[in-house]
């Protein structure tokens, strides 16, 4: 379940909502569920609520596995 999309916060309002943009589409989101959000932060939004900040960069596990397999594939190809 659970569709979510990453949004970048443009402007935070005093009532706990914010204007945010995703893929050129702007809308109001709620910030009740994330700690100290700031303008410019990227957040994961589900059902109109930011459910997590995405400020830790890329996940290494995913990159490591793809790199390992594609290296192995490349090596096999050379051999």
């Amino acid at each position: 379940m659970c569709l979510a999309a990453p949004y970048t916060i443009k402007e935070i309002f005093p009532d706990g909502s914010a204007r945010a943009v995703s893929g050129g589409v702007e809308t109001d989101i709620r910030l009740d569920l994330v700690e100290s959000p700031a303008s410019g932060d990227t957040v994961l939004v589900h059902a109109g609520f930011a459910i997590q900040k995405l400020d830790r960069g890329e996940s290494e596990e995913l990159i490591a596995l793809w790199n390992e397999v594609s290296r192995a594939a490349a090596a096999a190809f050379r051999a």
Binding site: L3, A5, S22, G23, G24, V25, T27
Partner: peptide, 12 residues
């Protein structure tokens, strides 16, 4: 189209 894709991602 980027915006169409974004609207689709958001609304499912």
């Amino acid at each position: 189209d980027t915006e169409t894709a974004a609207v689709c991602d958001i609304l499912g």
